[in-house]
Amino acid sequence: MTNPAFKPWILGLTGGIGSGKSAAAQHFIDLGVHLVDADNAARWVVEPGRPALAKIVEHFGAQVLQANGELDRSALRRLIFQDPEQRRWLETLLHPLIGQEIISYLARAESPYAILVSPLLVESGQYKMTQRVLVIDAPEQLQIQRTMQRDSTSEEQVQAILKAQASREQRLSHADDVLINDRDPAWLKSEVERLHHFYLTLRGGQP
């Protein structure tokens, strides 16, 4: 039975590609913290049967559907990357829906604080839904190295992704806490535990 007066505060968790954001998020989940991933919310809103998918098909035609009725993401991506106008149309449709999805999922939290993980927390303005921001940071060379190993991509591709994401300065300017993830996984885990104990002492995300 949840206490109606109890409302967890929201921590925004972000970081550039290869920073270790997902690993940090998993440690928080293991500690029992309720967490929603904005990327998952973005997938949920376009599932078959949801109004957003019907609107996308109405706008772009059946070419954006796979044979099984699911959204063909790569077909849609090709259409919107060629045309900024279409990309804006899609963002206008989806961003509010993704926001609602995130809010309703965070509202189910029963932990003292809940986490919104989003690679685009700063760029999308999603940080406004949070009371505190934790940035997982890493030296750029390490980000590139990790991503190349993980995704078997070239350095050029990783550089292109880094350029498209918020600059480190932009992200850090919104940070309340910064975790420099440049050591081993055990160290990351202990740092997350340290932050978790600190967060449990906070009310509304601020000391």
Rank of each mutant, 00 (worst) to 15 (best):
V57N: 05
I102C: 08
L90H: 02
A107S: 10
G49V: 10
K21Y: 12
R77S: 14
S74H: 03
G61H: 03
T14M: 03
L200C: 11
Q66N: 15
A114D: 13
Q26V: 06
D30W: 05
R132Y: 13
V178C: 10
D151A: 13
Q159K: 15
D30A: 08
P8E: 06
A54K: 10
A42C: 00
E123R: 08
Q165R: 10
A5I: 07
P119C: 05
N3Q: 10
L172N: 02
I136L: 11
T92G: 12
I180Y: 09
G15Y: 11
E47S: 11
R87C: 03
E156H: 15
L142C: 09
F198H: 14
R132D: 08
P4R: 14
L116N: 07
G69S: 13
E191S: 15
E140F: 04
D184F: 05
G49F: 10
H27N: 09
G99T: 15
A52Y: 08
W187I: 09
A109F: 03
L93K: 06
I10N: 07
F28V: 03
V33K: 00
Q206I: 15
P139D: 07
K7R: 14
I56L: 13
W9N: 04
R78Y: 09
G205L: 11
L120E: 11
T153A: 10
S154F: 01
F28N: 00
G18D: 09
Q149F: 00
H27F: 09
V117P: 06
G99K: 11
S104P: 02
Q100F: 01
Q145C: 02
E110Y: 05
L116A: 04
D72G: 10
A138Y: 04
Q149K: 12
Q157F: 11
H95K: 10
L97F: 07
P8S: 11
H59M: 11
E70I: 03
I144R: 15
D137K: 01
I115G: 08
G18K: 04
L79D: 05
I115F: 07
L94I: 01
G20E: 03
R150E: 02
A42H: 07
W9F: 15
D177N: 00
I144Y: 12
E155M: 13
L65K: 01
S111V: 02
L142G: 05
G61Q: 06
T147R: 04
R150Q: 11
L94D: 00
Q159S: 12
Q165F: 12
W89G: 08
A138W: 02
L195Q: 06
K128V: 12
S111M: 08
P84L: 00
G61C: 02
L79W: 09
S190K: 14
Q165V: 07
S173N: 11
E58L: 07
R146N: 05
D176K: 06
G204S: 11
L79M: 14
E191F: 05
G15A: 13
Q131N: 12
L90T: 07
R43H: 13
Q63K: 13
R87E: 03
R194S: 13
W9T: 04
R43V: 06
V135T: 09
R183C: 01
G99Q: 12
D30Q: 06
W9P: 04
L179N: 10
